[in-house]
């Protein structure tokens, strides 16, 4: 009796209620799109964001200089961070307590401070304090500074990956007479690498964007990368277009990487 009253009192069935909610949401979306299409000054927006003349001016430098430099800075910092990160991860897992402590201090420090501050430190702080500059100019400085920061993150990723390799792998390698180091290099690290490929690729995406921090170092025309190039062109042409195009250029790098990450993750899910 009570149950019957409850049914009547609700009046709307669950299905009916869902239909109404969805209809409301679609109506709202359609109204917003319509308002935007009718009310916005499309001519003005087109000029500001997608000025074809400006776009023509941006090429080919945006590719041959800016995109090239972004990729170059990113890859150099990534390679540096990868090697250092592996070393720190092995220190973190070392039986020698002093190495473990050093690795923890390193990771906490470089994960905790902003990449911006590290870059300023290497770009200006060290040159002033020691009256010397890092070799390799802009490229050298950004490789080391961003690489040091990336190494802290990658060290933790490596550690997790190495620890995720089943203990039996190390035991099997040792029982065949391999030394601990040989077993790590030939058996454990290659497997850890597979496990951490997705997070490592993510790190590469993050680094691609962080490479824009190079503007802090005061770059010259041939060392400009995408963000700085876009900003300079913004001033030059007084147009939003270069920023938009620079943004799209980042997406050319990061979207395929994101796709690769999803593919790798799906593959691993299948392998398990």
């Amino acid at each position: 009796m009570v149950r019957h009253e409850a049914r009547v009192g609700r009046r709307l069935t669950r299905r009916r209620r869902g239909q109404l909610v969805r209809a409301g949401q679609y109506t709202l979306l359609a109204a917003a799109v319509l308002a935007l299409a009718l009310l916005a000054n499309w001519e003005r927006i087109g000029e500001a964001f997608f000025d074809v003349d400006v776009i023509r001016e941006l090429f080919p430098e945006i590719i041959t200089v800016a995109l090239k430099n972004t990729v170059l800075y990113t890859l150099c910092a990534f390679a540096f961070g990868l090697v250092l990160g592996l070393v720190i991860a092995l220190m973190r897992l070392s039986p020698v307590a002093a190495y473990r402590a050093l690795a923890i201090v390193y990771i906490e420090f470089f994960r905790g401070v902003p990449a911006l501050l590290v870059l300023i430190g290497f770009g200006y702080g060290i040159p002033i304090a020691l009256n010397t500059e890092l070799p390799g100019g802009t490229l050298g400085t950004i490789t080391v500074a961003l690489g040091l920061v990336a190494a802290a993150y990658m060290a933790e990723t490596f550690r997790a990956g190495i620890q995720a390799v089943p203990k039996g792998q190390m035991e099997a390698a040792r029982s065949l007479g391999m030394s601990h180091g040989r077993a790590l290099v030939s058996i454990v690290i290659p497997q850890a690498f597979r496990i951490i490929l997705p997070p490592l690729t993510n790190e590469l995406v993050l680094l691609t964007k962080d490479s824009s921090l190079v503007y802090l170092l005061g770059v010259t025309l041939p060392t400009r990368e995408l963000a700085k190039f876009g900003r300079d062109s913004l001033n030059q042409y007084v147009s939003m277009t270069p920023i938009l195009i620079a943004g799209l250029a980042y997406l050319i790098i990061t979207v395929p990487l994101g796709y690769v990450v999803r593919r790798l993750e799906a593959q691993q899910a299948k392998a398990r």
Binding site: G168, Q169, A172
Partner: peptide, 10 residues
């Protein structure tokens, strides 16, 4: 020879 084989999967 181990119960779990421990072949190197890679």
């Amino acid at each position: 020879v181990f119960q779990q084989f421990n072949l190197f999967p890679h």
